[in-house]
């Protein structure tokens, strides 16, 4: 699912943005070896302070698995101010109908191959559909995207080949960077949807994402029934521990349950405590 985060709604999605900056650090510093600034495991630069829009893809567990950053080309942007070497000394394109896409990446460690819901190809397509539909709605006709050759190949193979390039590819860290032109047209969006089999609306509402993030941050423990200790619930607690002891599959698990019983024994009645100690 896609959420667009800009400076109008970012106060609601602080943890999503932090996750996104961490993903960018892993990709651009780690995998691609670009000379980027990473602090506390997060990659941020001055363009993040210029109120860009981030197109962010989340998986069903609320993890950031893909992202892209959009800026107007009429104002400061990376091709004009940082990646100008790609342009071979030429001035950059500047138009209200053209946006720049940078820091486009997906989480190759978390995602798989193939075309399933959690694949690199799916998330790449989802981010592109989200970005193009968002741009289209803003009256924007084309995008110039700074990408690496791997991403370029992925785009070509997923019904989303750039129609041209500006300047020429230049070495950047372990790989090269290039500026690709893509139209934000109905035809292109349809072609990506066809390839990736993404039919429905890719955007999630802010409320949905907020709920998902709240669910994600709630502590989870595997293999056990959640309980809320309350006054006079000693009987329920006893039943719970009996169930846990019965379900235990190894001596280690039994030890773990016994330790838990001792840890909360203060909340148990004497009768329950004794009953549980006798339980084998």
């Amino acid at each position: 699912m896609i959420i667009t985060i800009d400076s109008l709604n970012r106060h609601k999605f602080g943890s999503v943005l932090d996750d996104m900056y961490r993903l960018r650090a892993r990709v651009f510093q780690g995998r691609l070896g670009w000379d980027v600034n990473v602090q506390d495991g997060m990659e941020r630069d001055e363009f993040d302070d210029l109120d860009p829009t981030h197109v962010v893809s989340l998986d069903d567990d609320g993890n950031v698995v893909g992202c892209m950053r959009l800026l107007q080309t009429t104002g400061p942007h990376m091709l004009a101010d940082v990646f100008y070497s790609i342009l071979d000394g030429e001035p950059p394109l500047r138009s209200s109908r053209l946006w720049e896409a940078t820091r486009f990446c997906v989480d190759t460690a978390r995602l798989s191959g193939g075309k399933s819901r959690n694949s690199i190809s799916y998330v790449t397509s989802e981010v592109m559909i989200g970005a193009f539909e968002y741009a289209q709605k803003a009256g924007v006709l084309d995008a110039v995207a700074v990408i690496d050759p791997v991403m370029n190949r992925v785009l070509k193979r997923s019904g989303n080949a750039p129609y041209d390039y500006v300047g020429s590819a230049k070495p950047m860290g372990k790989v090269t960077a290039m500026a690709a032109l893509m139209d934000c047209s109905d035809e292109r969006i349809a072609s990506i949807r066809e390839f990736s089999d993404i039919r429905g609306n890719v955007f999630s509402s802010e409320e949905e994402v907020i709920a998902l993030i709240a669910e994600k941050s709630r502590p989870k423990s595997d293999n056990c029934i959640p309980f809320r200790p309350a006054k006079g619930s000693s009987g329920e607690l006893q039943d719970y521990f009996v169930q846990q002891l019965r379900d235990a599959n190894s001596p280690e698990e039994i030890v773990a349950v016994r330790q838990l019983i001792e840890a909360v024994s203060g909340t148990l009645s004497d009768k329950s405590r004794q009953a549980l100690r006798r339980f084998n």
Binding site: L93, S95, L98, Y163, L181
Partner: peptide, 17 residues
């Protein structure tokens, strides 16, 4: 030897500049 879309994107940019 470029696409008409490339022509258009450069023309639009030049016009606005």
């Amino acid at each position: 030897s470029i696409s008409h879309r490339t022509v258009e994107v450069h023309l639009r940019s030049g016009r606005e500049k």
